[in-house]
Nucleic acid binder design. Structure first.
Lengths: 232, 232
DNA sequence: TCAATCGTTCGGCCACGACCGAAGTATCAT
DNA sequence: ATGATACTTCGGTCGTGGCCGAACGATTGA
C-alpha cells in the first residue's frame, strides 16, 4: 500500500457526513456511547455500528466496552489535530476541547448528576477519589473495587445501607463506571447506588425533576468537606 | 452543523484516490499542468478536469492559465499542512508488517522531500534538531518557534533570506509541522521556506522532476555536517 | 428465570459520484 | 488555412458504499 492510498483512505473515512458528525462530537475529547454517536449523526444504531467499526479498524477511534455500553473516543491527539487542520481549511475553527457547546450548556449536569442510580460528575468523582485516597476502597480486578474494613466502618457511620447492597447478589457490588464528563471511573454498582441513596435520604442532594441533573444542597456541600475531605 | 458539513466536504475531496494522487504530487509546492496531474492519477484528461475544478471551487487548489496549459498548485500552506497531518495518521494506521513494507517502498521520499515549500523527512528533521540543539530555535507557543539572536546570526551567515521571510506578514514565521515519516515536528512557515530555498540555491539539494522527492547533493551532505553538525 | 436495553451482523435496496466516449473551445505551429 | 495540442463540457454507464429492517448476541436488573 502506498502512502497515497493511505491518505485517500483516511480522508475518505472523514469524508462521510455521518462519520464527520461523530468525529466532530468526539472532538470534545470525551468518550461517547455508540447510541449517542448514532443519534448525533442522525442515523440508526446499526448503520453507526458499521461506521464506528471502520474507524476503529483505521485507528481513528479507540473503543472501550463497559457493561451494555461501548464508549468511543478519538484514538490520539494526532487524530484531533488532523481534524482540526481540515476544519481550518473550511474557514471554521474546530472547537477546543474545553469549549464544547454542550459543555458550556450544561455546567450543572457536569457538576453532579445521576448515572442510572448512582452519582456522577464532579461530585461522583470527588466521593470516589475520597474513598480510595483514604484507603476505604481498593481495586479488585480490572473493573471492580472492594471495601476495606475501614471502608465498611466509614459507610456504617455514614448511614449507607450496606446490608441491602450486599443482599443484591445478582448485581456487582462496587463497579467502576467511566464518567463521561470527568473521563475517569466513579463508583457504581450496588454500593454506588447505596451511597447515592444516602445523599438523597440525608438531604445532601436532590434530583431536579425531568432531568438527570442533581443539585448539591448546602448541607451536602458541608458533608462533602467534613466526611470526604473534598471541596467542590 | 455547518462546520460538520464543511469538514466532510473537504475530507471527501481528499478521500478519492485520484484526487489524493494529484494532491500528493502537488505537495512538492510547485504548479503542475492538468495533463501531468491526470497522468499521475492514472485517469483520462476529462475526468481529471472535473476533479480539478471541484478542488479549485473548494479552495484547495489555485489555477493559472498560461497558453494552452493550465497550471494547478496547492492554494495555501494550510492545505499542505492538512494533507501532511492526514499522512501522519496514515503512518500509524497500517499493521506493523505491511507498514514496514510500505515504508521501504519509498526510502528516498522518507529521506528528503518537500512539504509544500520547506524540507521534510530525515533531512528536514536533522536541520530542525540542529537548530534547536544549538539554541538557535526555541519554542514559542504550542505550535511555533522563534529565532534566538544566535539563530539570526546563524541564518545570516548561511545566506538565508530572513528579510523576505519576516516581510511575509500573512504567514507564520517559524511554524511546527508534523513530519509524517519521522513522526516529529520539523520547521515550516516562512523560515522553513527560506531555509529550503537556501538549500536549493546553494546546490545542496535538488528536486526530482514530477516528484516531491529531493536529492541531497554531495556538497549538501557536507554542508549538513559542517553547518548543522548532522550526519544523514 | 424473564424482560429491557445496547450493540452488532446480515441481506437487500438504492443513490451518489467516478469514469470514459464524444464533441466543443482555445491556443499554438506550420 | 489546416492540423495538433491542451483542456473543458455533456451524456450515459456502472460499481462502490451508505442506509435501514430484521434477527441475533451480550449485559444488566428484577
Amino acid at each position: 500500500m502506498t502512502t497515497v492510498n493511505a491518505l485517500s483512505e483516511i480522508a475518505a473515512l472523514m469524508g462521510d457526513p455521518a462519520r464527520a458528525s461523530m468525529l466532530s462530537l468526539l472532538m470534545d475529547g470525551r468518550a461517547h456511547t455508540a447510541s449517542d454517536l448514532a443519534h448525533t449523526a442522525g442515523i440508526t444504531a446499526q448503520t453507526a455500528s458499521g461506521h464506528l467499526a471502520r474507524m476503529v479498524e483505521a485507528n481513528l477511534l479507540a473503543a472501550r466496552a463497559q457493561g451494555r455500553n461501548r464508549f468511543y473516543r478519538l484514538a490520539s491527539p494526532e487524530v484531533a489535530h488532523a481534524i482540526e487542520s481540515l476544519m481550518a481549511l473550511a474557514g471554521t475553527r474546530a472547537a477546543p476541547a474545553s469549549k464544547s457547546a454542550a459543555w458550556r450548556r450544561d455546567p450543572d449536569l457536569r457538576f453532579c448528576r445521576t448515572c442510572y442510580d448512582h452519582l456522577a460528575g464532579q461530585v461522583g468523582i470527588a466521593v470516589t477519589d475520597s474513598l480510595t485516597r483514604q484507603g476505604h476502597l481498593e481495586p479488585k480486578g480490572p473493573r471492580d473495587w472492594q471495601l476495606t474494613p475501614s471502608g465498611e466502618l466509614f459507610c456504617d457511620r455514614l448511614g449507607v445501607d450496606l446490608g441491602t447492597a450486599r443482599h443484591a447478589s445478582t448485581r456487582h457490588f462496587a463497579r467502576q463506571c467511566l464518567d463521561w464528563s470527568e473521563r475517569r471511573p466513579h463508583i457504581s454498582g450496588a454500593l454506588g447506588a447505596a451511597i447515592a441513596d444516602t445523599f438523597f435520604k440525608r438531604g445532601w442532594a436532590e434530583r431536579l425533576r425531568r432531568s438527570r441533573t442533581v443539585r448539591l444542597t448546602d448541607s451536602g456541600r458541608r458533608a462533602l468537606g467534613s466526611h470526604f475531605g473534598a471541596t467542590v
